[in-house]
Design a protein around this nucleic acid. Structure first.
Lengths: 255, 255
DNA sequence: CTTGACCTTCCCCTGAGGGGAAAGTCAAGG
DNA sequence: CCTTGACTTTCCCCTCAGGGGAAGGTCAAG
């Protein structure tokens, strides 16, 4: 029989952990002195402790280990754990790839991969002047009372512009309802005149390729600063600048 | 100017995070209404937000990102982050390897890799009968008042047995002071008669090879249940069993 | 003016323990 | 028998990066 400190040393673990695992019901002392509360452990318990440590070495959570020592399905748990670990490995690999790009670019384009939700929109083929088309599209949607409070955008490769809507709308010759699919996008934000957008587009495409990702849909352009946000009152001393205040986001759906 | 909710949606982040980052000083609103406390953000802030998200995407901690946006050394931080990520990758790879072994062995030998501290010991070449040798070694160390309260062991490949000591001791013809080096060991615990130890030894060696590790020293055998622990009072009803109560740990120093 | 969406701060929760305080226990040495 | 120092007990707070939710204040549209 060992007291907690010595048993902890033998097991290669801290006494704190043994106390916590006792309280958790994961690993209990062989005997507890009613009077003093001292926990006593037997060397015969070491194999069981080692089994727990072996499972924890695989990165399993204590609750799952608890289920296992109580007679859970070992094989299934290991399979779950493997999938989890392979996800972790993918994350690390992606981070390393992104880091390589950042190092190479030295404070690069700040591309971010993030999930986006489904986006219900009214789309319109662009015939000629983009600003006229936006005006027509916005008017149509607003008159229906269906304008969603999110910025408008474009699918340049399709020659289409879109405006978010709160639900289905009737189609016209020029305008159609569509739901841009949810998924992960690689996104970069461009601030300044639209002349720079083409360059940002190229940067984004190169980034995605360097990160080992594959595009799964057409690129989206979002006009974050283009009449989309509500006319909130400006704070005192707030000055809207010229070109610098144009903010555009480019999104490329990936894997 | 956007209120926090809309800006959060544009940025692909939660309002909670924006509030926390404001308090942290990592990312502040462009303007805060003195009266209502409302935070207002400008679209021109989106690039800065995206830079933070790009760094966070590399798995950096907020404190480090804070140091960076305050003008820290980007290149050095990325280098640190790369080392960290490569450590993480090694951990995941090791876990996957260990998991493969567990799946193959179906509740296998429960090998654990763990660090051990330096162990100052008195070692003795074993001439003939092991039990006689232990008696002599233990007596010598105890008479010097130098016995450390840890279990005795052996280095089978060297034909040596050892007993932990609390500090240097004078050598004799047969006995020498030595410090077993610290490091990581792969360890397995065997419970039962010593006949099974040889099999456990083989299992441990195979495990280490399958895990892609390399031995960096002689295997150590620790007799966890062999007169090493103090004669603590036995709890009422506590029965010491026969062979089952022998507990032996095998440790192999690795990488 | 109402209404509903939105915002504020405040508090508690996560997982797997670590650090440390105050008080009780044990074993060895004198 | 007493002291001493190592050890143990419970209890509380801390981590990290937020999430959940309550109570109450604010905003903008109809």
């Amino acid at each position: 029989m060992f007291r907690i400190g010595e048993f902890a040393r033998l097991g290669g673990i801290s006494a704190k952990q043994l106390r916590a695992w006792d309280e958790l019901g994961l690993f209990r002392p062989a005997w507890v002195d009613r009077w003093s509360g001292y926990r006593y452990y037997s060397p015969a318990q070491l194999p069981e402790l080692r089994r727990i440590l072996a499972l924890r070495q695989l990165g399993m959570g204590l609750d799952e280990i608890l289920a296992l020592v109580r007679g859970g399905e070992v094989r299934a748990a290991l399979e779950r754990r493997r999938e989890e670990l392979e996800r972790e490995r993918r994350v690390v690999e992606e981070r390393l790839a992104a880091l390589d790009i950042s190092v190479g670019a030295e404070a690069g384009p700040d591309v971010v991969v993030r999930p986006v939700a489904v986006e219900p929109v009214a789309v319109m083929r662009v015939p000629a002047r983009v600003s006229d088309a936006f005006y027509a599209l916005e008017s149509y949607v607003r008159d229906l009372g269906r304008r969603a409070h999110r910025p408008p955008g474009a699918l340049p490769s399709e020659g289409e512009i879109f405006v978010p809507v709160t639900g289905p709308i009737p189609d016209t010759d020029a305008i159609a309802y569509r739901r841009l699919p949810a998924g992960r996008v690689a996104a970069v934000i461009h601030r300044g005149s639209y002349h720079g957008v083409a360059a940002a587009r190229g940067t984004l495409l190169r980034w995605v390729e360097a990160a080992g990702l594959a595009a799964t849909g057409p690129m989206r352009t979002l006009y974050l600063q283009f009449g989309a946000e509500p006319e909130l009152r400006l704070p005192p001393g707030w000055v809207v600048e010229r070109d610098d205040d144009l903010v555009t986001e480019l999104q490329l759906p990936v894997t």
